[in-house]
Simulated scan of single mutants.
Amino acid sequence: MNGQTPASTAVNGITPAQQMISSCSGALLTSLLVTPLDVVKTRLQAQNNPLGKGKYFVYSNGLMDHICVCENGKGWYKAAGQFRGTFDAFYKIVCCEGITALWSGLPPTLVMAVPATVIYFTCYDQLCAALRARMGERAQEAPLLAGAIARVGSATVISPLELIRTKLQSQKQSYSELTSLIRSAVQAEGWWSLWRGLGPTLLRDVPFSAMYWYNYERGKSWLCQWYNATEPTLTITFISGAGSGSVAAIVTLPFDVVKTRRQVELGELQAKNLSGPVSSSTFSIMKKIVAQDGFRGLFAGFFPRLIKVAPACAIMISSYEFGKAFFRKHNQERIPRQLHSTNT
């Protein structure tokens, strides 16, 4: 009986705790490798709103976003001029700000990125297994629904923590001042004020997650048949993750551009100590972008987002699947040992 306990509480042969460890290691590795690409993407998207003295700049590593303060023209951001493209942006950022600027704000981002990723991937696996058992002939659609639900859950849970972190980074204030600020916001606008900005994030991330997991599972299954593999290899998971991530990134890019514009406006309003609505609705911002830059404006940063998302998805899912395979093998080997020790 003791040997059957882990399997009875596991999904696909591993426990939720083991899923969390696998997703945590994947989040750390992905953040370290792809943050520079997303910094460049965000700069290209936001350069139509240049930042001046005392303004703020938004960085993202694909897992979580953060606003960094620039005081007296020093610190996080220095004027690097207009970027002509991806490689020009890399060159100018490194020359004007140093190579470490490509990883600006990474430590505080990881504080949010790791728990968000752990919640997201663990919930997806648990939901997908449960839905497949109940959907019968439509079990192939379970990844689409599970991916969407898992993203809504993780984004909703982490949103108040991200708001607190953003406030701490964007203004110099003590924890008591922050507590007073949050209390007054809740009194004025209700508890929903802690989830400010969640809407455009969900508009981008929920369709992305649904498309990503559906295409990933289908691609992985197809490649296993192509290579006559009984289990997906590291190469299969890497290719499937990169391909599905690329498709989802292209489709949801306009919402990513809007998210960047909204967060830049948030920083500008905070720098000027202005109150009131941070920005207009998502679709109003889209209309404004189209009026200013045409439909091409909705796909600003296309290439850097693509070369960031594809390897990010590939590295994250490969690391996650590798971790799960490691723990699955460990559990399978442990059960016979436990049964043998019980019998002796």
Rank of each mutant, 00 (worst) to 15 (best):
Q4T: 12
Q4R: 12
V11M: 05
I14T: 15
P16S: 05
P16W: 00
Q19D: 14
I21Y: 06
S22R: 09
S22K: 08
S23K: 04
S25G: 14
L29W: 07
L33V: 14
P36K: 14
L37R: 06
V40Y: 12
A46E: 12
A46R: 06
Q47S: 07
N49G: 02
G52Q: 05
K53N: 07
K53H: 04
K55G: 09
Y59Q: 02
Y59E: 02
D65S: 13
H66P: 00
C68D: 05
C70P: 02
Y77W: 12
K78A: 11
A80S: 14
R84W: 04
D88K: 04
I93D: 00
V94T: 11
G98Q: 10
G98W: 10
L102I: 01
P108M: 12
L110C: 10
L110I: 12
L110M: 15
V111N: 02
M112E: 04
V118Q: 09
V118P: 06
V118F: 10
T122L: 05
T122H: 07
D125V: 08
D125H: 15
L127H: 03
A129C: 08
L131H: 05
R132S: 02
A133K: 15
E137S: 13
A142Y: 02
L145F: 13
A146R: 04
I149S: 01
R151N: 13
V152K: 00
V152Q: 03
A155R: 10
I158W: 03
I158M: 15
S159G: 02
P160E: 05
E162I: 07
T166S: 10
T166K: 15
K167W: 11
Q171N: 05
K172N: 11
E177F: 01
E177V: 01
I182M: 11
R183L: 11
A185Q: 13
A188N: 08
W195Y: 14
G197R: 00
L198W: 08
P200Y: 04
L202A: 04
L203D: 01
R204Q: 14
F208H: 02
S209K: 02
G219L: 14
G219N: 11
C224F: 02
Q225F: 07
A229M: 00
T237I: 09
S246D: 00
V247G: 03
A249F: 04
L253W: 03
P254R: 02
K259C: 06
T260D: 15
R261I: 08
R261G: 00
K272G: 07
S275E: 14
S275Y: 08
G276Y: 03
P277D: 09
S279E: 08
S284P: 01
K287S: 15
V290C: 10
V290M: 12
Q292D: 11
P304K: 09
L306S: 01
V309P: 02
A310H: 07
A310Y: 08
I315C: 07
I317Y: 10
S318E: 08
G323L: 09
A325G: 08
F327D: 09
E333N: 12
P336Q: 10
Q338A: 08
Q338M: 13
T342E: 10
T344L: 13
T344M: 11
